[in-house]
Simulated scan of single mutants.
Amino acid sequence: MKKSHTAQELADFVGAKLHGDATLHITNVASLDLAGPSDASFLANPLYNEMMKKSQAGIVCVDKSAEIIKGKTYLITEDPSLAFQKIAEFFLKDKNPTHTGFEAIHPSAVIHPSAQIGTDVNIGPHVVIARDVIIGKGASILGSSFISQGVQIGNDCVIFPGVTIREECILGNRVTLQPGAVIGSCGFGFATDKKNNTHKKLDHLGNVILEDDVEIGANTTIDRARFKTTLIKKGTKIDNLVQLGHNVEVGENVIIVSQSGIAGSSTVGNNVVIGGQVGVAGHLKITNNVQIASQSGISKNLTTPGPYRGSPAIPMDQYNRRAVLVRRLEKLYARVENLENLILKD
């Protein structure tokens, strides 16, 4: 039987102001276009105002600026996306993606006798746990993941299928690794023999540390340091298909979006947002509270907080002024050509 909660109960749960039918029963969540009368949905982007007006959703989470339509029920809050997320987690908490049906330690898992496994740990089919691994309580390691020697995994971590954690890497508490993530692969370092133009691989003897509440996206790779540590600090969230080179340090509560890359030994400050397909050259420093627009290229240190865009990246207001000038070039060229023609006629 589906859970059912009234609009008033949901408003109280997320701390929102209720507008509409307080007795309306909600049993699920859905997007605006798919939601029905018993579903909750949300509007966080004004681009979808028209969709919201046509939506059949029983309840819509909105902010104070949203247009209120007579006869509909709303939860009005400062952050409708966050309110909706809380409702979604409330309704879907029994659909935990780690509850695969394989509980405790699957008999096909291969675990070295020296490994230390905490209480309430789930280890799925065909997982390999190497020597001297330490796994904290409540961790879930799903099928076909490989945990190499000397790895430490904190409490309540979730490691989805096909993850590789290389030797001596350390995960804090509540770390999530999405499918296919590789933590601690060798850095891309080679010494070139100028006599015969061959490339000799440089050993990488360090590790990777992921602090508490870090999430790493699917098929993202984080290289181990050459000697010390590649460090991702607490609360940072990294999207799918991101590459972080050896010795990189990423600060607290950073967001890095898909297909971005940070070359070796660069440092990213706290509360930085890096858009998709951004490239950061090696040995650079990005200060706290920087926002970098998608497809930008970082070729020098960014020492002032604020938004940047372009390749090479420059402050956003400067980029916008240049963009306006570029759009005017065609007209400017025509004016210059006309002036040249007038001069030639004289």
Rank of each mutant, 00 (worst) to 15 (best):
L34E: 14
A35T: 10
A35I: 08
P37W: 00
P37S: 12
S38H: 15
S41Q: 10
S41V: 04
S41I: 04
F42M: 01
L43F: 10
A44C: 01
N45Y: 04
N45E: 05
P46K: 12
L47V: 12
L47G: 11
Y48T: 07
Y48E: 01
N49H: 13
N49V: 15
N49S: 13
N49W: 07
E50T: 12
M52R: 12
K53F: 13
K54F: 01
K54E: 13
S55P: 08
S55Q: 11
Q56F: 02
A57T: 06
A57E: 06
A57G: 09
G58H: 07
I59A: 06
I59H: 02
I59V: 13
V60N: 06
V60P: 03
C61P: 09
V62L: 05
V62T: 11
D63S: 08
K64F: 08
S65W: 00
S65D: 09
A66T: 14
A66V: 05
I68N: 01
K70M: 07
K70R: 12
K70L: 07
G71T: 10
G71C: 10
G71Y: 10
G71N: 09
K72R: 14
T73H: 09
L75V: 03
L75M: 02
T77C: 13
E78T: 13
P80V: 06
P80E: 00
L82T: 07
L82R: 12
A83E: 01
F84P: 12
F84E: 13
F84C: 13
Q85A: 13
K86V: 09
K86G: 02
K86Q: 15
I87R: 04
E89Y: 08
E89G: 10
E89M: 11
F90T: 02
F90A: 08
F91N: 07
L92N: 14
D94Q: 13
N96M: 00
T98F: 13
T98H: 04
H99V: 03
H99E: 13
T100Q: 06
T100M: 09
F102M: 11
E103D: 13
A104P: 05
A104D: 15
A104Q: 15
I105S: 07
H106F: 11
S108T: 15
V110C: 07
H112F: 06
S114L: 01
S114Q: 00
A115D: 00
Q116W: 00
Q116E: 14
I117H: 03
D120R: 14
D120K: 15
V121Q: 05
V121N: 11
N122E: 12
I123K: 10
G124M: 03
H126R: 12
H126N: 15
V127Q: 03
V127F: 06
V128Q: 03
V128A: 14
V128W: 00
I129K: 04
I129D: 10
A130R: 10
R131T: 09
D132F: 03
V133H: 03
V133Y: 02
V133E: 04
I134C: 01
I134T: 14
I134L: 05
I135D: 03
I135G: 04
K137A: 14
K137H: 14
G138F: 03
G138P: 00
G138R: 10
A139N: 00
A139P: 00
A139F: 04
I141M: 07
I141D: 03
L142V: 08
